[in-house]
Amino acid sequence: MKAIRIFSRNIANAVKSIFRNFSLSIASIICTTITLVIVSLAIIFSANVNNFTHDIENTLTIIAFIDKTATEDDINSIRSKILAIKNVKGDELIYKDKETIKEETMKNTEESSSLYSIMESWTEETNPLESEFIISVKNVEDLGKTAETLKNIDKVSNVKYSEDVVDNMIPLFNVVEKVTIVIIIGLIVVTTFLICNTIKLTIFARKNEIEIMRLVGTSNFTIKLPFVIEGLFLGMIGSLIPILATIWGYIFAFDKLEGHLFTNYIRMITPIPFVFYTSIALLIIGSLVGMFGSYITVRKYLKI
């Protein structure tokens, strides 16, 4: 009961203190708001780059063409050898024989075209196409290595994959993703530093209060508590505008851009529930940074 009374009084005191030190509270809130808006933009950017990279990664496959002389047994042997490769997604392995490929190609070709009539004239014996395995991989970065392994399988005549995308785009996206994560962490550190400084001003203005608290026999924990709660409230209030801006701004941008950025290839993340997760992240960052900033600043005045 005693602890509940102390806690509830401190909550009331923290609210009172925000209003009694109104100008400094506003300074802390604005500082939190500005930095969290930047953090929000960085999160949105990073998440969309990440999403786009995954989209591309999911479309990347290897095609292994099978030698025309391969028998049914050879194909089964190739299948089991492919499945034995660690990087291969076994449940997504597709086999297409040359007749299926011919039929699929004809479906996508105009009947009036010469290619259609040529293909139509092919019999199972004269069909020059090669049967193929379409292979999805677990780790796209090792796509090249997997392709090399596939080439060495007996009766595999050729192996094809999007070398350009794998060699250039994927490493680039990985770098972009890592850089944005570093930027987000950097921004959180900067926010903490800025909030600490603002709270330092607030606490410096109230060092008499802390001194008197110590003189009247208040324990260090009880002295810290209202400041930490105040920091929590300031952080939470400071994250309100960034949260609203994120929800409204992202949904607005998504609608305006029709879910695509620059080209149809770059799909944006669907707003719901993405904006809510981002909002929760902003609320948590704001609250924790406010609490942490208050805690480390008030410690300096406590001679602990």
């Binding site: 001194e211 110590r214 026999g217 324990s219």
Partner: peptide, 24 residues
């Protein structure tokens, strides 16, 4: 210890020349 000073202070009352009252 510094963290235990409050236990002593609760047994004391202190009056200062400059009052040390909280103006707000």
């Amino acid at each position: 210890y510094n963290s235990r000073v409050y236990k002593l202070r609760r047994k004391l009352g202190i009056v200062f020349q400059d009052f040390k009252l909280l103006p707000k």
